[in-house]
Simulated assay, not measured.
Amino acid sequence: MSVFKYVSESFEELKSNVTWPEWAEVQKYTIVVAVFSVVCALATWGVDESFSKLIAFVYNWFKG
């Protein structure tokens, strides 16, 4: 199978067989993904800061 045939069949599949969502649905899901990404980033930052402070406390406690 040639690359050209593969690419043209892929585009034909996208045009005829794929059900694309409505624009309003795309916008809604984009907002959901953005909010979830921010929440996950804040959670990761919070855990990182907590462990950083915990490790610094334990290090200073052993250092004396």
Results as ranks from 00 to 15, higher is better:
40 C>D: 09
6 Y>D: 09
54 L>M: 09
28 K>M: 08
56 A>L: 10
1 M>D: 07
53 K>P: 12
14 L>W: 02
41 A>T: 09
36 F>I: 01
22 E>I: 14
32 V>T: 13
32 V>F: 14
10 S>N: 13
22 E>C: 12
53 K>R: 12
21 P>D: 03
31 I>T: 05
54 L>H: 10
30 T>G: 15
29 Y>K: 15
14 L>T: 05
34 A>M: 04
43 A>H: 02
49 E>S: 11
64 G>P: 15
58 V>N: 02
4 F>P: 12
4 F>V: 00
39 V>R: 06
29 Y>E: 14
63 K>M: 15
26 V>A: 01
4 F>M: 07
50 S>K: 01
44 T>F: 09
19 T>F: 14
59 Y>H: 12
58 V>C: 06
12 E>T: 14
55 I>K: 13
35 V>M: 04
45 W>G: 08
7 V>P: 08
1 M>P: 02
32 V>W: 03
34 A>G: 12
51 F>K: 13
64 G>H: 09
30 T>L: 03
22 E>T: 15
23 W>R: 13
29 Y>H: 09
39 V>W: 06
27 Q>L: 06
19 T>D: 10
24 A>P: 00
25 E>I: 02
60 N>E: 07
53 K>Q: 15
1 M>K: 04
26 V>L: 04
44 T>W: 04
13 E>M: 06
49 E>N: 06
11 F>R: 07
37 S>I: 05
2 S>Q: 01
41 A>R: 01
51 F>V: 09
57 F>D: 04
41 A>C: 13
44 T>G: 09
14 L>A: 09
19 T>V: 13
63 K>T: 05
14 L>C: 06
30 T>V: 02
26 V>N: 00
25 E>F: 00
57 F>M: 07
42 L>G: 01
50 S>W: 02
51 F>M: 07
42 L>K: 01
33 V>A: 10
39 V>Q: 04
20 W>G: 05
58 V>L: 12
28 K>Q: 03
23 W>E: 15
26 V>S: 04
40 C>E: 12
8 S>T: 15
